[in-house]
C-alpha cells in the first residue's frame, strides 16, 4: 500500500427536481448516483476503503439546494490506516442545507486501525427550515485490534447560530482518560445520531433511554441527539437504528 499522501475533494450539489448539477469524484472519493427508495435522490460514496492514510487530506462538499431531498450513504466503512507520512490524515466534510431541503447523511462506520491518526471535521450550515439526519459512528480498531488515534469534530449551525458542537478524541494520541469511566469506559464503538427538524419547535422531543447504552436527548434548539456506546459496530448500529426510526420518520 505504498503511495504518497494525496489531496482530494469530492463535490455534490442536489436540486429540488431530483437532479445532481454537481457530482464530482476525486481520488479515492468516488461518488455514484444510486437507486433510491422514496422521494430522495441518493448518492453513494463507493471508494473510501483505501483511505485515509496518514498525511492524506480528503474533503467532501455537499450543497443541498432549496427544496431538495438528498440521501448520502457509503458502500463500506471508512478505514483510517497508517500512511507514508507521520502527519495525521485530515477528512473534512462540509455541508449546507437550504430552506425546505432535507439531507439524510448516513455513511457507514469510521474505523480507526492500529497506528493510524485521523482528524475528521464535519461542519453543517442549516437554513431555518432545513431538515437533517446525520449519523456518525466511531469504531476503535478492527476486530481485536488496538485503536489508532481518532479525533472527530461535528459543528452544526442553524440560521447562522450554533446548534451543536462536539469533539471526540480517542486512542493513544488522545488526552488521558479517554478509556476511563467518564468517556468510553472500555467500549470500542460509539456513535451519534443528530436529527434537526423545525417541527420539534412545536413538539419537543423528550429525553428517552434505550437500555443502558443509548439515550436520546433534546438539544437547546429544534433538534435531538442520540448518543450510544457499544462493544462493537453491530451493537452500536442496532441502538442508533432504533433511535433513527423514532426520531426521523421523514
Amino acid at each position: 500500500m505504498d503511495r504518497v499522501s494525496l489531496r482530494a475533494t469530492a463535490r455534490i450539489a442536489a436540486d429540488a427536481d431530483g437532479g445532481l448539477p454537481l457530482l464530482v469524484s476525486d481520488g479515492p472519493l468516488a461518488l455514484r448516483r444510486t437507486r433510491a427508495a422514496g422521494p430522495y435522490t441518493r448518492v453513494t460514496v463507493v471508494g473510501a476503503m483505501s483511505a485515509p492514510l496518514g498525511g492524506d487530506r480528503l474533503a467532501i462538499e455537499t450543497e443541498v439546494r432549496d427544496g431538495a431531498r438528498l440521501l448520502v450513504d457509503s458502500a463500506a466503512a471508512t478505514l483510517a490506516l497508517p500512511g507514508p507520512s507521520a502527519d495525521p490524515a485530515a477528512y473534512d466534510v462540509r455541508i449546507s442545507v437550504a430552506d425546505g431541503a432535507v439531507l439524510r447523511w448516513l455513511p457507514e462506520q469510521l474505523v480507526s486501525a492500529a497506528g493510524s491518526h485521523l482528524r475528521m471535521r464535519t461542519t453543517v450550515d442549516l437554513a431555518p427550515t432545513a431538515r437533517l439526519v446525520l449519523r456518525e459512528e466511531q469504531v476503535l480498531g478492527r476486530h481485536g485490534e488496538v485503536p489508532g488515534t481518532l479525533t472527530t469534530r461535528l459543528t452544526v449551525r442553524r440560521a447562522g447560530r450554533p446548534l451543536f458542537d462536539q469533539e471526540l478524541s480517542f486512542g493513544p494520541g488522545a488526552p488521558g482518560g479517554w478509556d476511563g469511566g467518564a468517556v468510553l469506559g472500555g467500549h470500542r464503538a460509539t456513535g451519534q445520531l443528530l436529527v434537526v427538524d423545525p417541527a420539534f419547535a412545536d413538539k419537543a422531543v423528550e429525553a428517552r433511554l434505550y437500555g443502558e447504552n443509548a439515550v436520546v436527548s433534546p438539544l437547546a434548539g429544534p433538534a435531538a441527539l442520540a448518543t450510544a456506546v457499544a462493544p462493537d459496530a453491530l451493537a452500536l448500529r442496532r441502538l442508533l437504528d432504533a433511535a433513527l426510526s423514532e426520531l426521523a420518520p421523514f
Binding site: 468517556v183 439515550v215 448518543t227 450510544a228
Partner: peptide, 18 residues
C-alpha cells in the same frame, strides 16, 4: 473555543436524572 466532550457523561446524565 474547544468542544471536547465525553459520551458516557452525556449518556449517564440522562439516566441519572431519571
Amino acid at each position: 473555543l474547544p468542544a471536547a466532550s465525553a459520551p458516557l457523561l452525556d449518556l449517564t446524565a440522562e439516566q441519572h436524572a431519571a
